Amino acid sequence: MIVTRRAITATLSLTGLAALTSRSRFDPISAALANGTAEDVAEPVSLPQMALGPVDAAVTVTEFASITCPHCAAFNENTFPKIKAAYVDTGKIRYVFREFPLDPVAAASSVLSRCIADGDAEKYFAVTDVMFRQDWSRFTKPRDTLIQVGKQSGLDEDQVRDCLKNEDVFNKIVADRIYANAKLGINSTPTFLINEDRVVGNAPFEEFDRRIKALLKD
């Protein structure tokens, strides 16, 4: 059975922030998996692309991640800084972050990150880094954590609440998640597409380094 956008939206509902007190996860979307092309990966479905590096780079690395995913957090802490230093900051690749929330907290975190960044990719990556560094497993009230992160970024509590009530951004995140699964075959986090080459899981820097170098030589 294919899970519809309505079903996922209901599962991840942010109405009244009630879902932020829940730690339940939803089942992955069951759909026919299809291999995407580099063009599919580079073009966002609904939301403005959050990316670092030149638009015309020969290599694009696209990360699909969920903020509450511990493997994603480990990659963010240990591997992404090395990729950024070696390839993004030197202008050799473009790095795209795509939200693939696995639970209501991850969805809310992505909504808040988008709100704080307000279209600024550098700021978005900085806020996302802060989100990844939270120990979500320890908190029974993740709403308080989101409010704290918002305050660190200059928002007061009411502004954070207003951000989290943005159903338009939330629905677009859900739409992009459905697209990533049904069109690109993404069903776990973190998953990476290096142009059309796929890497699943928290792979070490050496794996990315090898694959990126091979593509840059083409």
Rank of each mutant, 00 (worst) to 15 (best):
P28N: 08
A180Q: 06
N78V: 13
N195R: 03
R98D: 00
I178L: 13
P204E: 05
A58G: 06
F170N: 02
F192L: 09
N187R: 12
P44Y: 01
R6Y: 01
D156K: 08
A117P: 04
S153R: 07
S66Y: 05
G16D: 14
F170R: 15
R161H: 07
L164S: 09
V130N: 12
T62L: 06
C115K: 07
I67Y: 10
R211A: 06
R177L: 14
F192I: 07
D168M: 04
V169W: 01
G201M: 07
L14G: 15
F192H: 08
D135Q: 15
D120H: 02
N187H: 10
S153A: 15
N171Q: 11
L215Q: 09
V88D: 00
I67V: 15
V149R: 06
A86G: 02
F80T: 09
R23K: 12
L112C: 09
R6A: 15
V174M: 04
T11W: 13
A180R: 12
C69G: 11
A7T: 14
A18H: 10
C72E: 07
A203D: 03
K82Y: 01
C163S: 04
F97G: 03
R25F: 12
T145P: 02
T21N: 14
T37L: 07
V3F: 12
V105S: 07
R177N: 04
R211I: 12
D129E: 14
Q134M: 13
M131P: 07
V169Q: 05
T128L: 15
N35W: 00
I147V: 15
K92E: 05
E207P: 06
L17A: 13
L47P: 01
L146N: 09
Q152W: 09
K172Y: 00
I93G: 00
L14Q: 12
N171K: 10
D120R: 03
A106V: 13
A180Y: 03
D144F: 09
Q134P: 12
E122R: 11
N181P: 08
G91F: 01
K151W: 01
M50F: 04
I194S: 00
V130A: 14
G53H: 02
T145D: 11
I2C: 08
V160K: 10
T21L: 15
T11D: 11
S109L: 12
R5T: 00
G36V: 14
N78C: 08
I2S: 10
E167C: 02
T128E: 13
R114L: 04
N171M: 02
I67E: 00
P54R: 00
P54C: 02
T79K: 06
I29S: 07
P104N: 07
Y87E: 00
P104T: 10
E167F: 09
N171P: 03
L215D: 01
L33P: 09
S13F: 10
R211L: 15
P81Y: 06
L184R: 02
R138S: 15
E99K: 03
A175C: 03
S188G: 13
